[in-house]
Amino acid sequence: MADPMKIRATLKGDTAEIRILMAHAMETGQRKDAAGNTVPPHFIQAMTVEVGGKKVVDGHVGTSVSRNPVFGFKVKGAKAGDKVVVSWVDNKGDKRTDEAAIA
């Protein structure tokens, strides 16, 4: 099981700024380990962000996103206390869902 995400959601006016830090190795499949073996790809493929029960962002990700990816989004019409739910799934089928409330 992957480590929890860090989600920060702050309200500015009627727009929520959401920043997400995902803990993931994001192996590209290009890298070689010390023994010269290619490290197999292991990366997040899909992610969704929901605010107040509605899907706001549907993202697909490739190998060239950095290790421990950080994503920032802005959502209009959000209210303080709305629940932000972020989920991802990687190419090995590992998944993780975390939530936070808009502050």
Binding site: V65, V70, A78
Partner: peptide, 15 residues
């Protein structure tokens, strides 16, 4: 893809 009030902007970190 953005829906339900998400503003069309994103920040990310790439390799």
């Amino acid at each position: 893809e953005f829906t339900n009030g998400a503003l069309p902007e994103v920040s990310a970190r790439l390799k």
